[in-house]
Design a protein around this nucleic acid. Structure first.
Length: 153
DNA sequence: GCCAACGTTGGC
DNA sequence: GCCAACGTTGGC
């Protein structure tokens, strides 16, 4: 199984929104690298960090689990959606989603500044400059280390 | 709101 | 297939 980090702006979709729904569709990814992760590497049972971007505090706020593997993102065909893609072909969809289930919300956000300050996480995608993917793989070691940080004071 | 960095597009 | 221009992202 794999570990992932999924970014979302809480304005658009927050961990509290996911908690309310319990199972949510991770919609709106419009990047081919991310699409390929979803298509090729996301498996049921994979665990994901939920990362809040753009609004303070920026950082990892909880955990979710993949409960359904990749299928076509319905928003690409919906002209009313902000994710509508006029070039998307229903016979050969470009964009995919997975379903994720709420697992837990951390008592305290593991902030980006704390991630950056931890030398063990120096190679973690999210702390690296210019790394803008909304979905990134997380290594076993990084996963364990971030979890350890949630129990720090 | 700014800016750096990167992905995507389109002309050639 | 290259590459410049443009758009978008995300942290601050």
């Amino acid at each position: 199984m794999n570990y992932w980090l999924l970014r979302s702006e809480p304005d658009v979709y927050s961990i509290d929104d996911l908690k309310k729904e319990d199972v949510g569709m991770w919609e709106g990814c419009r990047n081919y690298t991310v699409r390929n992760f979803l298509r090729d590497r996301f498996k049921v049972g994979d665990l994901c960090f939920f990362y809040h971007s753009n609004i303070a505090p920026v950082g990892i706020i909880g955990i979710m689990e993949v409960v359904r593997e990749a299928y076509p993102d319905p928003t690409q065909f919906d002209p009313k959606s902000e994710y509508y893609d006029p070039k998307a072909d229903p016979a050969n969809p470009r964009w995919l989603v997975v379903d994720v289930k709420f697992v837990k919300k951390f008592d305290k956000c593991v902030e980006l500044s704390a991630l950056k300050a931890n030398p063990k996480l120096a190679s973690m995608g999210v702390v690296m400059k210019g790394q803008r993917l909304s979905i990134m793989p997380v290594t076993d070691a990084e996963w364990t280390e971030v979890l350890r940080m949630t129990s720090e004071d």
